[in-house]
């Protein structure tokens, strides 16, 4: 039976974009059982015309209600360099402190994990920057999310 794709227009109008550039949110360990739930991400820093990348900066915010002993952390590494950060207060309006890893252009690894079983709803921000703190090319790939 012949049909056309005119239904596309109506349906697409309600399609929402869930992510914004260089920030994203999800729930780690959504089933509430897996204390070892881990996210694994690659971020590529490249020169998009704004300048050669010198570093990757990152911060994280935990939106879930506070649970004693349950915190979310992020580890960042590239080559032989690494750093990490934890949002020490869940559910407040503040991000963790920002951290940066000055490892130049190329592919960085970001690991997200938490200290105990239980879901953690979070947002993370990541930005590749030049030595003068100018935002430059930033692309992300998610390899694992549990």
């Amino acid at each position: 039976m012949k049909k056309t794709l005119t239904t596309f227009a109506l349906l697409a109008a309600s399609h929402l974009q869930p992510l914004y550039a260089h920030s994203g949110g999800a729930t780690l360990g959504e089933d509430g059982l897996n204390a070892s739930a881990t996210g694994l991400v690659r971020i590529t820093c490249f020169d998009d015309g704004n300048g050669e990348p010198a570093k990757l900066t990152m911060r994280i915010i935990d939106h879930s209600e506070p649970v004693e002993g349950l915190l979310i952390s992020a580890q960042l590494y590239k080559g032989l360099m690494a750093t990490n950060v934890t949002d020490q207060i869940s559910g407040d309006a503040d991000y963790s402190e920002g951290v940066e890893l000055s490892a130049g252009p190329g592919v960085y690894r970001l690991i997200l994990n938490k200290t105990a079983a239980g879901p953690r709803r979070f947002d993370v921000e990541w930005h590749c920057k030049t030595a003068d703190d100018i935002h430059t090319g930033t692309e992300i790939i998610v390899d694992q999310f549990q």
Binding site: T4, L5, G24, F145
Partner: peptide
Amino acid sequence: ESQDEIQTPLGNVVGFWAGGG
């Protein structure tokens, strides 16, 4: 008329579609 990206279950964009009109 319409277009969008195609994402994997992890949210990576591996393609796109366009149609309608």
